[in-house]
Amino acid sequence: MMNSTNRPGMNEMVNELKARFNVEEVTFVQDHEAHVDLHRKDLHEALTYMKQNGFRQLSAVTCIDWPNEKIFQLIFNIYDWSKGNRFIFRVKIDREEAMFTTITNIYGGAKYYEREVHEFFGVVFEGNDSALKQLFLEQWDDLPPLRKDFDSRAYSDRKYVKREYKTSFGEKGGEPFERN
């Protein structure tokens, strides 16, 4: 982890952001990649500002579940192709009341990313109504699957028939194969 970078445009941009918005922390992971922790209220303005300053592409919107801290961390990944700089904005939202305002009015491409985050984490994006429907899963009947408290192995064991192997393996003969 670096605290600064020599890449042109990065430091200026970070300073601008610090001046304008409520920036909690900035980390440089690679030369061209800065992770910026923002307050959730500032995100939309920050994204709008960034889009006006060359960051025209939204690479991804995704989410991290931190059950111990009871937060979801939303990740907004934007990129400036002409300079090759990448900014990753991270905001924290409450895990129990997972709500956030949509960014589709800033980056239209976020529509399906938000939908995916809703499907896999249960985060509701206000203003993006289409995000409330299921996209990848069909007739899903459990917790949103990418949450940490969802155990996919237990779900699989419960729901799908497993093949039973009665054949003996080697000399030990008949002992169940232990894993982990």
Binding site: M1, V29, H35, S59
Partner: peptide, 8 residues
């Protein structure tokens, strides 16, 4: 090590 990264 603990951390986050976007590798593209």
């Amino acid at each position: 090590k603990e951390g986050q990264i976007y590798s593209a």
